[in-house]
């Protein structure tokens, strides 16, 4: 008799979880930093200061912000694809170093050698910054393997897109993660499109939270535009993984406002769809409205915060514009380690 595989479909709480006022403000600040940073990056790309591909995170800010707030910074590892600027900012990496990597300068996080898709930090336990769609699923599972092997109690947070969710190595990783009870949370950032392909055109089933069903990995579908929902689900998932229960899947329902990369005309979706998300679901506007409603912040205080953030971004942009390019000798370094 064949037995049907059933994964526990954990329902997101009917009551919206509350964040403290301080947490709301922190989330607002982090998300606004990402937004303004990315807008500036887009502008600098247009000026020819950034080359190649440049994938902006605008619209998806609540995902990485909520997850990172629920994690242990400096202990839990994070890994993602090429849409990675926001991850680094929230993890506490210097915006100057991120922007200077985008412009390919010596003060960049990879000393100008990696570019927008390839940035890393051992200290902050950020493992990239990966250009090959789906690779981070296996790599992130490996980070969890090391955590279990060493018994250091850390959790690996592996982000990938709805498009990446169709790569074979994702399922190979799911199987091993469950088989060996590895502390990994798979975060599927479902922004409805992989380049110009909607999830309906690429996926036989579009409930990505259930993609672990045949491995019995629990999964949740989360409103990824609401940072409270993200935070709350991430707490549960990370706790599950940290206490030795193995992997967990969080499908984040989110949206990217901009094209896939800078050179995407975005003809595959309607203007109305984008406008609707921007006007009705914007992750930053949601928090802002609550902060003003509770009176924890005022228009005035938020304006001050906004100028602080603009100053940080401007400083990063200036640094990234004026910092020198790497020394020519760097061409031949970092290829192998002399033993």
């Amino acid at each position: 008799m064949a037995r049907k595989a059933v994964a526990t479909k954990v329902k997101t709480q009917p009551n919206v979880p509350e964040l403290t006022n301080e947490q709301e403000l922190e989330a607002y600040r982090e998300m606004l930093l990402i937004r303004r940073f990315e807008e500036k990056a887009g502008q600098m790309y247009g000026m020819g200061l950034i080359g190649g591909f440049c994938h902006l995170y605008i619209g998806q800010e609540a995902v990485v912000t909520g997850i990172t707030m629920a994690s242990e910074k400096g202990k839990d590892a994070q890994i993602t694809g090429y849409r990675d600027h926001g991850h680094m900012l929230v993890m506490g990496l210097d915006p100057k170093g991120v922007m200077a990597e985008l412009t390919g300068r010596s003060g960049g996080l990879s000393r100008g050698k990696g570019g927008s898709m390839h940035m890393f930090s051992n200290e902050h336990r950020f493992y990239g910054g990966n250009g090959i769609v789906g690779a981070q699923a296996s790599l992130g599972t490996g980070l969890a393997f090391a955590s279990k092997y060493k018994g250091d109690g850390s959790v690996s947070l592996a982000y990938f897109g709805d498009g990446a969710a169709n790569q074979g190595q994702v399922y190979e990783s799911f199987n091993m993660a469950k088989l060996w009870k590895l502390p990994v949370v798979f975060i599927i950032e479902n922004n409805k499109y992989a380049m110009g392909t909607s999830i309906e055109r690429s996926s036989a089933t579009t409930d990505f939270s259930q993609r672990g069903a045949s491995f019995d990995i629990p999964g949740e579908q989360v409103d990824g535009m609401d940072v409270r929902m993200v935070y709350d689900a991430a707490k549960r998932a990370i706790e599950h993984a940290r206490s030795g229960n193995g992997p967990y899947i969080l499908e984040m329902l989110t949206y990217r406002y901009r094209g896939h990369s800078m050179s995407d005309p975005a003809k595959y979706r309607s203007k109305d769809e984008v406008t609707k998300y921007r006007q009705e679901r914007d992750p930053i506007e949601q928090v802002k409205a609550r902060l003003l409603e509770t009176g924890f912040a005022t228009e005035e205080s938020l304006k001050t915060l906004e100028s602080e953030i603009r100053a940080i971004v401007t400083e990063a942009a200036d640094f990234a514009t004026n910092d020198p390019e790497p020394d020519a000798a760097e061409l031949w370094t970092d290829i192998t380690i002399e033993a």
Partner: peptide, 16 residues
């Protein structure tokens, strides 16, 4: 091409 992975920085890419 030089015997290195492709660097991103404009000056290094040109050299590679």
């Amino acid at each position: 091409g030089k015997d290195v992975p492709m660097p991103y920085a404009a000056n290094l890419e040109k050299l590679a």
